[in-house]
Amino acid sequence: MSHTALIPSHRKPRQSASKTALRAGVAGGVLSTIAVAGAAGPAQAEPVTQTIEMPTITAGLSTTVAASAEATQQVALDLETQANQDAAAATAAKAAKKAKAEAVRKAEAKKKAEAAAKAEAKAKAEAAERASRASRSTERTTLSAPSGSSSSSGSSVSTASAPAPSSASGSAASVVSFVQMQVGDAYVSGGTGPNSWDCSGLVQAAFRTVGVDLPRVSQSQSTAGTQVGLGNLQPGDILYWGGAGSAYHVGVYVGGGQFVGAQNSSTGVVQKSLDYDPPSGAVRVL
């Protein structure tokens, strides 16, 4: 046996003549049938009555349209909100500008009012100072006149606020004269003259005119000399209010039951009777 007898051949087997003839006859019959149908003409063709259904797209389209309408409405709302915000911002800015202008106007008006008040206060102070100086000048003229002197009309000149000429002499008279000349000056805490004083500043300045250097404060001045009783006072004695060594106020006895002192900011420097403000004690330096 050949060594290739069992290996199948890959070549197509040849068709038999009978199969070939059969296929040719079938093909010819089909072609003949087509030819006969074509010769019969269109009158013999059956009408096409089949209906074709188109796919329904209404559901998807409505969803799309609804989404588009919602988006359009949202855009409109956003635009309206933005417009409202812009209008509110413009209104707020206008109100703020108006408020600022009003505040500036009020500040200017307040500044002008304060300036006017200061000017008025200054004018009043100057007028009061002029009146005070005129009053002091009148009082000094009165104090310098002899007791019991008469005017051309025969009326006596009042000397009620002045001590008798013989009641003070020497250094005491100088101290008394000095403090009496300051009557009408202003009281200022810490003041040492020449036109404003506190109580101890006036007493210190008065004794300095006669070469006596007193301590600055009333507590020390109340123990600067010899303690004397209030029933044994002499012009030039230092009066004090409060305890000796802890006094809160001092003045100078000028005779005739009167004293001169820088009392307070309301009265200034005054000459008053001891009954007006009775002192606690007195010291004699001269």
Rank of each mutant, 00 (worst) to 15 (best):
H3K: 08
H3P: 14
H3Y: 03
T4D: 12
I7M: 05
I7L: 12
P8Y: 05
P8S: 10
S9C: 04
S9R: 04
S9D: 11
S9I: 00
H10N: 13
R11H: 06
R11N: 04
R11I: 03
K12M: 08
R14M: 07
Q15A: 09
Q15H: 04
S16E: 06
A17V: 04
A17N: 05
A17P: 02
S18V: 13
S18I: 09
S18M: 05
K19T: 03
T20N: 05
T20F: 01
L22Q: 11
L22H: 07
A24H: 06
A24S: 09
G25W: 07
G25N: 06
V26H: 08
A27H: 03
A27R: 10
A27D: 07
A27Q: 07
G29E: 00
V30G: 09
V30D: 01
V30W: 03
L31S: 14
S32R: 00
S32N: 00
I34W: 02
I34Y: 04
I34S: 13
I34N: 00
I34G: 09
A35K: 01
A35E: 04
A35C: 04
A37W: 00
A37S: 08
G38M: 07
A39R: 06
A39L: 14
A39T: 09
A39H: 01
A39M: 05
A40T: 05
G41P: 01
G41E: 02
P42Y: 07
P42L: 12
A43R: 02
A43E: 01
A43L: 02
Q44H: 10
Q44N: 07
A45H: 10
E46L: 06
E46H: 07
E46W: 00
E46D: 06
P47V: 07
P47Q: 11
V48D: 15
V48P: 01
V48W: 05
Q50Y: 13
Q50H: 12
T51N: 06
T51W: 11
T51Q: 14
T51A: 14
I52H: 09
I52F: 12
E53S: 15
M54D: 09
M54L: 15
P55F: 09
I57S: 06
A59T: 15
A59P: 04
A59W: 04
G60L: 12
G60K: 08
G60I: 09
L61E: 08
S62D: 14
S62E: 11
T63L: 12
T63G: 15
T63S: 14
T64N: 04
T64G: 09
T64W: 02
A66I: 01
A66W: 02
A67P: 00
A67I: 03
S68T: 08
S68G: 15
S68E: 10
S68Y: 03
A71W: 00
A71S: 11
T72E: 10
T72H: 06
T72W: 01
T72I: 01
Q73K: 08
Q74A: 15
Q74Y: 00
Q74L: 13
V75I: 10
V75F: 08
A76S: 13
L77A: 15
L77M: 08
L77F: 08
L77N: 12
D78C: 03
D78P: 01
E80W: 06
E80M: 09
E80Y: 06
E80L: 13
T81W: 10
T81P: 01
Q82A: 15
A83Q: 14
